[in-house]
């Protein structure tokens, strides 16, 4: 699993930390998810065009009828093009005291969640994720600001991480 080199780096990453990447299958999941969402939006946006082409209702300027679906298509394609980069930008690293999580390229975020602060750990698996053998892990602290989710972990790795986090959390548990 640990193909450390494939995690996308950025200026605000802490030095001398090697991030573990998440599974590449997350790309497939996101392609399907975002592709389907895009298709639905595209279908809705294309209704006036269909009405116009089929001659049912033509009271709609041609440029708008073509322009809206075209714009939606461009945005959807752009979102899909970004998926591999985004997935490769997700990384996590277990350190002695805390877990590091990084997200994003343009809007980049690095987060440290100390083991001793974790209240509980959620492991979730949606239907698509189940199909691909992936899990998401969500770390909760007493703060709502801690929005620490790692998507697209292989199920076995998620299980290992959960056990690891629970064990370390228990060992280092601190009060609020």
């Amino acid at each position: 699993m640990p193909k450390t080199s494939s995690v996308h780096g950025s200026a605000i990453d802490p030095v001398d930390v090697t991030f573990l990447p998440v599974s590449d299958k997350l790309m497939i999941a996101r392609f399907i998810e975002r592709g389907l969402t895009g298709l639905i939006i595209l279908a809705i946006g294309a209704i006036p065009l269909l009405l116009r082409q089929s001659g049912v209702w033509g009271g709609y300027p041609a440029w708008l009828a073509w322009g809206v679906p075209a714009l939606i298509l461009v945005i959807v394609l752009w979102v899909l093009v970004l998926v591999p980069r985004q997935v490769r930008a997700i990384g996590y690293a277990e350190r002695n005291e805390d877990l590091l999580i990084r997200h994003g390229i343009m809007f980049h975020r690095v987060m440290v969640v100390p083991y001793g602060r974790m209240q509980y750990v959620d492991v979730t698996m949606g239907p698509l994720e189940r199909l691909l053998g992936l899990s998401s892990i969500h770390l909760h602290t007493a703060s709502p600001g801690t929005n620490a989710i790692i998507f697209g972990l292989p199920a076995a790795e998620a299980g290992r991480l959960r056990e690891q986090l629970s064990a370390r959390g228990e060992a280092k548990l601190a009060g609020l």
Partner: peptide, 26 residues
């Protein structure tokens, strides 16, 4: 301190800036 994070958007990246967040309870 509950957890901490660093954030950077494109504009801030251009200017070489970064936001530092500390997470406290509600």
């Amino acid at each position: 301190t509950q957890s901490i994070s660093l954030r950077q958007g494109p504009l801030m990246a251009m200017l070489g800036l970064v936001d530092f967040e500390l997470h406290s309870t509600v």
